[in-house]
Amino acid sequence: MTAGQLMQTMTALGFEHRWLEDEFVAESMRQGERKQGKEHHYVPQMYLKRWAVDGKVQPVLTDRRQVLRPQPPKEVAKKTNFYSLPAPGSTMDEPLRWVEKHLSRIEDECAHRLDQLEQWGSGVMSDDDLKRDLSVFLGLQITRTPVSRERHLVVIKGPVAAKREFYRRLDPRLTEADFQDMLDRADPDARVEAITLMFSDVRRAVARSLYQREWAVYRTAAPIVTCDDPVVILAGPPHGREVTLGVMPSAVVLYPLGPQHLLVMLRPGLRHSGRYVLDRDETRSINHEIVAAATSMVFERPGDNIAVHLEVPTRAGVPELDDEQTAGLGAAAALRLLLNDATARSRWAGVPDAPGWPVPRWYTQ
């Protein structure tokens, strides 16, 4: 896919914001031509610095409950060539080389947006411009992580019948000709196509779903942690703890702003009520959710010593769906298998003594 085709794809999608428009993307591409770095961060350094003490954060391996040595934010939550994905023996391809620069430009502008939100103190957030900016930033944070990349690859590599039903439900106006054109335009390299979906998901659905929620900032009675997948999505009751849903239908979306502040985004129809301070028990339950949401690593302030005392089940792997598995299935059945494999796995699935959903007052009408 060329740079022009990618910009055309992004422009044709839903949520309008200057960070997703042609001019901003083109400037990222120009600046990206000069970018040489290969270490790409999927959690922004400027965000992790909010937990730094003397320039270092405390990483904890989730499944092992192993505390690692404190490290600078630039040394964690990164992968080599995660956004560039150069072909073996070749130089970085232009439509890909710029992606880290594009994300870093948005992060630079959002650093003080997060400060503004934290300085809100507590209560309902009513600044519309701030909300729009952070909807894009948080949407990209959801779609840029390694586990999100894996789920995109499941959809990209999935059976044609399942993908056809998937996109028809996403857009009921989609014709067979539209679907075939989509398949024809898809990049033959599934990894490249996954990067395209990273942006298109934000503009098509994720940013708008976040923006339409009821936002409030809560202070916490004790420190909170963050993790390598820091936008935490809670399906909420009446669903059981084994259920994971996307941004739109889930009851609550959480985002730690720092060691003492939490952004809480409720589904339309739910309302923040009562105090905007989480007591110690509620704070502990939130920390438990953040640790459970981690792909592999939690981050906290050195000395807080929180994550190591919160045990969570090991996360199950994601199987790969193929045409052989779906042979003879109808489109709807194939779609169910595809969505099952492309959905994040809850650590609480099959756990008989899983904790209840945190902060019950969030789930009432």
Rank of each mutant, 00 (worst) to 15 (best):
P302I: 03
Q45V: 06
E39R: 14
E150C: 03
D181A: 15
R280V: 12
G330Q: 07
P95T: 02
S122W: 08
G37R: 06
E176C: 01
Q212Y: 02
E94V: 07
A216T: 04
P95M: 05
T226S: 10
I286C: 02
A161W: 00
R164L: 11
V225C: 12
Q8M: 09
K131L: 04
D184H: 05
S90R: 13
A333T: 13
A344S: 11
L337N: 13
P88M: 07
S296C: 07
A333D: 15
V206M: 08
V136L: 14
E27S: 12
Q325T: 10
I224P: 01
F299E: 02
L310H: 13
A162S: 15
A235P: 04
S126A: 11
V154W: 01
A77M: 03
H41M: 04
D341N: 10
F179G: 06
A194F: 03
G328P: 07
F24E: 14
R105L: 09
T2E: 10
V124H: 08
Q116L: 12
W215K: 01
R18F: 07
L134W: 06
L96M: 11
T175H: 08
I106M: 10
K35W: 08
T11D: 15
G328A: 11
G4S: 10
P313D: 06
R204T: 15
E300F: 01
V160F: 08
T196E: 11
R64H: 06
R271I: 03
A194P: 03
A12L: 09
A251H: 07
D127Y: 07
D115M: 00
A331E: 15
S126L: 12
R267G: 00
Q66V: 04
A342T: 02
V291C: 03
V264N: 03
E94K: 11
G4Y: 00
R204G: 03
H17D: 14
A354M: 12
A334W: 10
T175S: 14
M46C: 14
S90T: 13
H112F: 08
L234P: 01
L20V: 05
K38G: 12
E39L: 09
T283G: 02
H272M: 03
L96W: 03
L134G: 10
R50Y: 12
R132P: 05
C227Q: 06
P188F: 11
T244E: 05
V232R: 01
Q365D: 09
W51C: 05
P70A: 10
